[in-house]
């Protein structure tokens, strides 16, 4: 079970993640997208979900990532991501509830380039009973 004290907390990722052109190219290629000067709109998920996994697996938070399914996903995109962007990521546990034994947690992920908030993502994750 998730530690209830972690709800409302924001965890700042320790890493700086730099986006490469080859990452954008391979993501675009899967979708049949030929525009590669900027990333497709859902590209940021490859950064934020990974960061969320690290944070939620933290012993202070204690979410069981292995039984987790993705319930919903939302993006707010202030500007497109391009190769060479370097991001820090913060994750905030916005809400948590238990329904029929399933744990339902909504995590916001914010990607910052310096002080610029580039993309915000909201992921609802369900840990199945």
């Amino acid at each position: 079970m998730l530690n209830p004290d972690s709800v409302g907390r924001t965890f700042k990722g320790a890493e700086t993640i730099t986006v490469s052109q080859s990452q954008i190219d391979s993501f675009a290629s899967v979708l049949g997208e030929t525009q590669t000067d900027i990333a497709p709109p859902t590209f940021s998920i490859r950064i934020t979900l990974n960061q969320m996994q690290k944070i939620l697996s933290d012993s202070d938070v204690n979410l069981d990532w292995s039984r987790l399914v993705h319930g919903d996903q939302r993006f707010e995109i202030n500007r497109p991501i391009k190769a060479g962007d370097s991001f820090t990521c913060s994750s905030t546990i916005e809400s948590y509830r238990v329904a029929a034994g399933n744990e339902i947690v909504t995590v916001r992920g914010d990607l910052f380039s310096g002080n610029e908030l580039v993309v915000s993502t909201w992921s609802t994750l369900v840990v199945r009973a």
Binding site: Q35, A39, P40, H70, G71, Q73, I77, P80
Partner: peptide
């Protein structure tokens, strides 16, 4: 994005699985 004219056009996007 194909309809709207490129990847820069999307400002918000959400869905439930």
């Amino acid at each position: 994005t194909d309809w709207a004219g490129g990847s820069a056009s999307v400002k918000e996007f959400g869905a439930r699985f």
